[in-house]
Structures are given as C-alpha cells and as structure tokens.
Amino acid sequence: MSLQFVVDGLLTGSMIGLGAIGVTLTYSILRFSNFAHGDFMAWGTYATLAVVSAIGAMVGKVAPIGPLSFGWPLIVALIVGMAFTALLALLLDKVLFARLRSQGQAIIVVMASFGASMALRSLLEFTFTSRPTYFSRAIQIAMPVGFGIRITPDQIALLLLTAVLVLGVHLLMTRTQTGRSMQALSQNAALARIVGIDVASVVRVTWVIGGALACVAGVMIGILVQIRPFMGFDMLLPMFAAAILGGIGSIPGAVLGGLIIGLAEAGAVQLIGAEWRAAVSFIILMAVLFVRPIGLFGVRER
C-alpha cells in the first residue's frame, strides 16, 4: 500500500485529536460525555465561514498567503469563530448543563447534550441547508515529498497549527495556575474548592478551551474536506473513541488517540474502502473497552 495514508491519517487524526481534547476535558472536569461537542465544531465552522464572507464583502478579494489557498481574512475569521464557539459553549452551559448539573444526576446532562446536539445541528440545517459548502474552491497542487507521499501547502500549515495548539494547551495545563486548577478539579472536586479554587471559573475555562479547539478542528475539516451541518456529528464517535483510547482526562492521550484513529481510518480506507471508515473508531473503541478501559494514559477510577 502507498504511504500516502500517513499524511491523510495525520490530518484526520489532528482534527479528531483537537476535538477530543474538548471531549476529554468536559468529561474529566464536568464529568459528562458531551454529545453536543461535534455540533460546536460545525457551528464554529459556519461562524468562521460567515465572517470570511463578511470580510470578503467589505474589502473585496484578498490574495492568498504564499502557496496557501486562503488569505488573512480566514485567519481573522478563525479567531472570531473560536471566540464565538467558546461563547456558544458557555451559553449552553449556563442555560442548560449547569442547571442540570446542580441537580446531581450526571446522566441527565448527557441526555440534555444529546437533545441540544439535535437542536443545534437542525438549526444549522435550517439556516444554511444541508448542501455542502467550501472555504475555497481553488484546487491545490500536492507536492511530492518522497516515499510516494504528496502533501499540499494547506495540509502542512494545518499540521503545524495543530502541533502549536496542542503544545500550547499542554503547557497551559501543566505550567500555569489555571491548568493546575483544572487538574485539581478533575482529580478531586471537593478538595479543589477547599484549596480555594473557584469551580465556576475553571468550568468556564474548560468550555472556552473546548469550544475554541472544536472550532479549529471544524475549520480544518472545512478547508480540507467540506462544510456541512453534519460535519461535527459525524466526528463524534471518532472523538469519543480517541478520548477513551488516550485515557479520559489526558490531553496528550486525546491527541495520540486521535492520531492513532486517524491513521487507522486512513489505512482502512486504502485497504477496504472509504465506505467503512466510520467502523474503525467503533472497533478501536470496543477493543479498548474490553482490553484496557482506562486507555493508554488513563488512571483507574477509585
């Protein structure tokens, strides 16, 4: 088989991994599986698209940066989109999740996230229809880099962006007071309050990080594949599988889990065909649950 699957896998894995960071943070800090996380992705992408269009309408056509398919408007729009998605997550928490959380039944929150997911996705379908759309219709020429692998400038840029974001989040989690507070809260919520950590503010940071990264993952899909209302929902299973494979609560784990699933998907596409891609995450998920439910970097619940 061709080694091209490595590049494809790393790209898919980056998208999954960035999304899985949000999933794993929500699970370890707020203690529920957020089924609306995929729809944060889609909303972030459409928001970014809207801002790109708005900038385009205001300043006219902007030349792309170097060999990339997009110019500065997309970068500005992405930042706006990240902020928007973070706010959306905060809002949803305020009106829905936080209220249910205070009733003390975690699984009700999961169900509410399922309902919210349906509502969010359908609203996108209502506003933008289910027709796919694109950031740019320009076709990029893939450059050969040896070993039969070809890669486009966009792909290189997005892989670098992923690496920078993952490193940034990792440093935030391990080197800053905010990150330590998040770790503390996920390990022992009662003790976290005792040592003076304001749970509400840590919860807000969690949503902001999860929402912003979901938006980046969505925009990556938008640049490399296409934009559809279901784009995020279809990523849900791979993201959950990546978070569980990596070990719930572990950010390096979520990213590594995402890369493994991305590579496995890309390999499966070459070997058995694209139509079975979605089954890969499920098989990996089942294997992890049977063999090592705590995942690669997880710690046993005590």
């Binding site: 330590r180 507070s181 770790q183 390990q187 003790l191 040592v195």
Partner: peptide
C-alpha cells in the same frame, strides 16, 4: 481546612499540590 481523607491530589506532584493551593 484539611479533610479527613482524600486530602491531596493523587496524580499531581507534591510540588504542584503545594503550588495549586497558592492561588
């Protein structure tokens, strides 16, 4: 306050346990 049990963060280093309380 020092609780009776589970009064440390088990997965954090000793130093981070101290540091996280320095808010």
């Amino acid at each position: 306050f020092v609780p009776q049990t589970e009064n440390i963060f088990p997965l954090m280093s000793v130093e981070d346990n101290l540091r996280v309380a320095c808010g």
